[in-house]
Simulated assay, not measured.
Amino acid sequence: MKLTPKQKKFADEYIKTGNAMQSAITAGYSKEYAKARSSKMSENVGIKSYIEKRMEQIASPNILTAEQILERLTGIVIGEITETVVVATPIGVEKTEKTADFKTQISAMRDIMKRYPNNDKLIEQQIRKLSAEADIAEANAREVTDNGTANEIRVIGFDRRAEEDERS
């Protein structure tokens, strides 16, 4: 199947960005069309075939394969891959290894799930829930002072309100 110039431009942009909607807009499709049809365009047999052929042409030992990317993302999620961070100490600074924070892990999980078009909706919901919990934990961490009293007060205040609600 021969591609139209717009479809070819869409495919080339999609290879660069991985973003179907933005690729469709860049290729010349209207925003409305891109919003409604861009995901279907990337599933089009002709476009898919073109993308696969182009990916083979640009393959290089310096470019990660899909399998390598998935393995690395999985390593981030399960904590096998760590990053070196510099931490201030009373006597100077020291380097330490740490696993990815929740937001980074969730982002990696989302990236993994994108590669499986028939992914389970339950898993998607669980990832959304984890993301919300990570946002809450991050907000709580910002509230904590050096001695931790701000968080303790907030939690105690919350408990009192819950008790008052139960009494009502």
Rank of each mutant, 00 (worst) to 15 (best):
I63C: 06
S38Y: 01
N140S: 12
M21Y: 06
R115V: 11
D159N: 03
G79W: 06
E13M: 14
T84A: 04
E163K: 04
I51K: 07
L64P: 12
K2T: 14
R37G: 01
R54M: 10
P90M: 01
Q22H: 15
E164C: 06
F10C: 04
E94N: 05
D120S: 06
P5L: 06
N19D: 14
K8Q: 03
N62R: 12
E67Q: 14
K53C: 06
I112G: 03
F102K: 12
R72W: 15
E52H: 10
I136C: 00
K35L: 15
R128M: 14
A24L: 02
L64K: 14
E71I: 08
D146R: 13
A11E: 01
S30L: 04
A132H: 13
K48G: 11
L70Q: 09
I78G: 03
G18M: 09
A137D: 09
P117F: 07
Q7C: 01
K129I: 15
Q68P: 00
T96A: 13
Y33I: 09
E138C: 02
R154I: 13
I81Y: 00
G18A: 09
I15G: 07
E13W: 05
A162Q: 08
Q22N: 15
S168A: 15
A36Q: 13
R110I: 08
R167I: 08
N140L: 15
S39W: 06
F158Q: 11
L64D: 10
A34F: 00
S131G: 06
T82Y: 03
L73W: 05
A88H: 09
D165Q: 04
K8C: 03
E163D: 10
